[in-house]
Amino acid sequence: MTLVTVFALLLSYLLGSIPAAAWVARARGVDIRTVGSGNSGATNVLRSVGKGPALAVALFDILKGALAVWIAHALGLDGLWSALCGLAAVIGHNYSPFLGFRGGKGVATSFGTLAAIDPVVGLCAFAVGIFTMWLTRFVSAGSIVAAALAALLVIVMQRPVWMIVIVLILSGQLIWLHRENIARLHAGKERRLGEKVT
């Protein structure tokens, strides 16, 4: 590993760790860690603060993942290391030092990373995820289905081995962080899109 590679990975982690959801909510007088799911993500902002702030957070979180990959490319790193920088951004989002190594579930940042790595796979997963959310009104269901589809697509489309491994890690981490949501879905207790926190 060169110094440029180490710098890119650290920068990507720090970029990913910027807790936009927590800071936006705090500006509205809400501690995102104490309401709803407690996650620092756009869905919790939507339920606790509103649509406008949630959209801004979602776009910023997507950009974090994409920027990490693009910056790595700009620094001359190859596809593998650029993808690893995207993964570092997702890890930073999920385990932010600004929030005591807590964070969100990495859905938006994972999508930004995936879209920058492979736009075709990223857009297909995004479209199916959004359709699933619209159909079921469950954000978690859409996120899980999109993650599973992305993992399937990179294998079926015979992407490079390094890309398959990175996407499997991204998808596996996302699904694992949604394990409580899966349990609530199974029990019929998951909140639907648009429901406010109480």
Results as ranks from 00 to 15, higher is better:
residue 169 I to S: 11
residue 4 V to W: 08
residue 86 G to A: 03
residue 85 C to R: 04
residue 141 A to V: 09
residue 32 I to G: 01
residue 151 A to G: 13
residue 68 A to V: 08
residue 27 A to W: 15
residue 129 G to E: 04
residue 117 I to V: 15
residue 103 G to S: 09
residue 29 G to F: 03
residue 140 S to W: 10
residue 50 G to R: 10
residue 125 A to N: 07
residue 49 V to Y: 10
residue 40 S to D: 06
residue 44 N to G: 08
residue 29 G to W: 03
residue 170 L to E: 06
residue 45 V to G: 01
residue 143 S to W: 11
residue 57 V to L: 03
residue 123 L to M: 09
residue 77 L to G: 08
residue 180 E to T: 15
residue 39 N to L: 04
residue 128 V to M: 11
residue 190 E to C: 10
residue 116 A to Q: 06
residue 163 M to I: 02
residue 149 L to F: 00
residue 142 G to D: 02
residue 3 L to Q: 05
residue 3 L to Y: 10
residue 51 K to W: 07
residue 59 L to Q: 06
residue 48 S to F: 06
residue 99 L to C: 09
residue 117 I to T: 08
residue 41 G to I: 09
residue 119 P to C: 05
residue 84 L to G: 06
residue 158 Q to K: 15
residue 116 A to R: 05
residue 16 G to E: 03
residue 96 S to W: 14
residue 183 A to C: 02
residue 62 I to N: 04
residue 27 A to Q: 12
residue 67 L to C: 12
residue 197 V to I: 11
residue 163 M to E: 15
residue 56 A to C: 08
residue 86 G to K: 07
residue 101 F to G: 05
residue 18 I to T: 02
residue 160 P to M: 01
residue 72 A to K: 06
residue 119 P to R: 07
residue 188 G to N: 10
residue 38 G to L: 08
residue 42 A to K: 10
residue 37 S to M: 02
residue 164 I to K: 13
residue 121 V to E: 03
residue 69 V to E: 03
residue 192 R to M: 07
residue 171 S to R: 05
residue 113 T to D: 01
residue 61 D to Y: 04
residue 105 K to N: 12
residue 196 K to R: 15
residue 115 A to E: 02
residue 196 K to Y: 00
residue 131 F to I: 12
residue 110 S to T: 14
residue 161 V to T: 15
residue 117 I to D: 00
residue 16 G to R: 10
residue 133 M to F: 05
residue 153 L to K: 09
residue 29 G to N: 12
residue 67 L to F: 14
residue 147 A to E: 07
residue 105 K to G: 12
residue 152 L to P: 14
residue 127 A to M: 13
residue 158 Q to A: 13
residue 126 F to K: 05
residue 180 E to R: 14
residue 105 K to I: 01
residue 175 I to Y: 04
residue 22 A to S: 15
residue 13 Y to E: 06
residue 53 P to V: 00
residue 8 A to I: 10
residue 142 G to H: 12
residue 56 A to Y: 13
residue 63 L to I: 08
residue 195 E to W: 01
residue 131 F to R: 11
residue 87 L to C: 12
residue 198 T to N: 14
residue 115 A to Y: 12
residue 197 V to P: 10
residue 95 Y to C: 03
residue 38 G to F: 07
residue 78 D to P: 05
residue 139 V to T: 13
residue 98 F to E: 02
residue 99 L to W: 07
residue 144 I to T: 00
residue 135 L to P: 14
residue 99 L to T: 02
residue 37 S to I: 11
